[in-house]
Write a protein that binds this DNA or RNA. Structure first.
Lengths: 342, 342
DNA sequence: GATCTGTCGGAAAACGTATTCCACCACCTA
DNA sequence: TAGGTGGTGGAATACGTTTTCCGACAGATC
């Protein structure tokens, strides 16, 4: 239908000549912002743009304006439902604000993360959102890189990592775990084990410690600790190890996140046990799979999608320097932790 | 430690003056590609860049070079494990190739998708990857937009949509569903119902039709069809509707994807029935949750992550114009469809 | 010793857009 | 009618890079 100039897309100048105006006028007509052009020329330009299928070169726009319309999102693993939900919230917010999202995954490697932030700096994104807690060690290098980015006018927001000096949206993992522990004690449980992730992972530590603190507050001495990976396979392995070693009276296993808990459920079934009846299991996060498994998983509801959304808002708002937004959690008791007759 | 010029990051010229060379030399030193600079100047430039914390402005680079190092990925819903897995594969491949990924989600809206492709065109990404089958109707407008993008030198790859004229990676949904049907008949099932998605969704249609064809090949007349949304809630609603209407001898329900099947499982439990015993359920995709639910879900294994990875490779390879890569599927029989005594 | 060849550095143009600055015109006011 | 005022269009410049083009110089060949 229209001429297809092979090799490259139509430029603003093409549109301008097609419309019989100058490039400046064409630019003004298409952005509309600062100054207004006569209705007549405006129509001409719009028509020419439509005819040529013009799409402004955003890279050129960015270099001319000195700022981009993109937001960078860094997650550990996009296939993990926790991060997927956060990403969904962040993307939703970004699209609402007319921004495009560039995404990178760290695979939980601090070096990779550093590399990513460094590369990202080159993109000059409007904001960088870091999702998921990271290993404590790398924070020096990471902080340096982020400071450079911020010094250049970039914004940073963090999800679930209240230890970096940026706008942060998080939940009170410690307190929520305490509440979960209290609720489970109220259900009649007395002997516990905890499946936790790498100790350097702050989120994991807070949840495990909070749970033990909650038990202590209820007069229960302690809980057996089993370290493992932060993944479903990690949960499976840890549960298997626990079973091999002998349950020794443990009535309930608390895994510091749902994917680990689901792995533990699977390990129980693999061992011929019935989760909920033979051994209770609780998790943390309330990912959607928590209601899909049978027995449905007792857990702590974390508003992941909202966290992503709020993180984006935080990154876009100029005000908040080191503001921390605490989102509420809710203890959700389900069939994986039935009330104990005792 | 070093001067932090507030407001903007150091530019190539800053590095050049710091090193005492021209901008051209600095550029050559940092890219290394076309021409070589003397070892002495190279060291000077590298040192200056490190000292200033220089990160090249990729937007400016892109306008100068006329090409970007980004790949755009379009999915329907990143919180859906199917798309999350595909995205993970694509991102993995992109990072391996030194590309950054920009991501957009359509929420299954054809208009939104069109808008996204149009905006994306402005980014001049190296390639666009479309994941997930789309409604048939919008293909004209979408195809036009994509053609414009391609005419300008962009590459397109598609996942699971063998109807667009681009490099495509997909699975044989029809045949796989046939095989699943055959396997289930061999297990002793005789009366079936099918929970399918919107009929305009090609993937849904292929799977439903394939399943019925497989039944026919085994001498079974047909199956009750229930239309619904392509989501977990859709599966739940459809299953509930089916139960309300009366099972009428149906022994097995096939949902055209796993999230729907999992929704159906939940509906069964909500109705006080035991999935697997009272009614068998099968899905499609083999998302990781399929092994987490109880009973574990019979399904068709689809290599989602590999599909994302291959799609990226396809988009990067110049050769394949309309090449279609068929990835193998495997029928996976699990406890949700126990062998029938009959 | 003169010319050719090859290498390396810098000046300048290019990429596609936004924006500043200036000229122009029409209109309104005194 | 003269002078101001506000709005509109275009030429030119800027953004931060890459790349072309040209000059300078060193070494090799005759």
């Amino acid at each position: 239908m229209t001429e297809a100039p092979t090799g490259s897309s139509p430029t603003l100048r093409d549109v301008a000549t097609e419309a019989g105006v100058s490039a400046a006028t064409a630019s003004r007509a298409l952005n509309g912002s600062t100054r207004n052009v006569s209705a007549e020329k405006l129509a001409l330009v719009l028509q020419a743009a439509a005819k040529l299928g013009y799409a402004p070169n955003l890279s050129a726009q960015a270099t001319a304006r000195g700022s981009t319309k993109t937001v960078a999102l860094i997650v550990h693993d996009i296939a993990d439902p926790y991060f997927a939900a956060i990403a969904a919230g962040a993307i939703e917010g970004a699209e609402a604000a007319g921004l495009t999202v560039t995404m990178a995954v760290t695979d939980r490697s601090p070096e990779r993360e550093l590399e990513i932030v460094s590369t990202l700096r080159g993109h000059r994104p409007h904001a960088i959102i870091l999702a998921g807690s990271r290993i404590a060690d790398d924070e020096d290098a990471l902080a340096g890189e982020l400071r450079a980015y911020e010094a250049a006018g970039g914004r940073v927001a963090v999800v679930s990592q209240p230890s970096l000096p940026y706008g942060t949206v998080t939940v009170d993992n410690r307190r929520a775990a305490e509440e979960l522990a209290a609720a489970l004690v109220a259900h009649g449980y007395r002997r516990f084990a905890v499946l936790h992730g790498p100790p350097a992972l702050r989120t994991s530590r807070d949840r495990a410690e909070g749970f033990v603190a909650g038990l202590a507050a209820a007069g229960i001495a302690g809980a057996e600790q089993v370290g493992t990976g932060f993944t479903e396979d990690g949960g499976h392995a840890a549960m298997t190890r626990l079973l091999d070693r002998g349950l020794d009276g443990v009535e309930l296993v608390f895994a510091v996140n749902d994917v680990m808990a689901i792995g533990a459920l699977r390990a129980l079934r693999d061992a011929g046990l019935v989760p909920g009846r033979d051994l209770a299991v609780a998790g943390f996060d309330d990912i959607s799979a928590a209601t899909d498994v049978d027995p449905a998983l007792t857990t702590v509801g974390v508003p992941m999608r909202a966290m992503g959304r709020r993180a984006l808002d935080l990154a876009l708002a100029d005000a908040a320097e080191g503001e921390v937004v605490w989102l509420p959690t809710t203890v959700v008791l389900r069939e994986s932790t039935p009330r104990r007759p005792g």
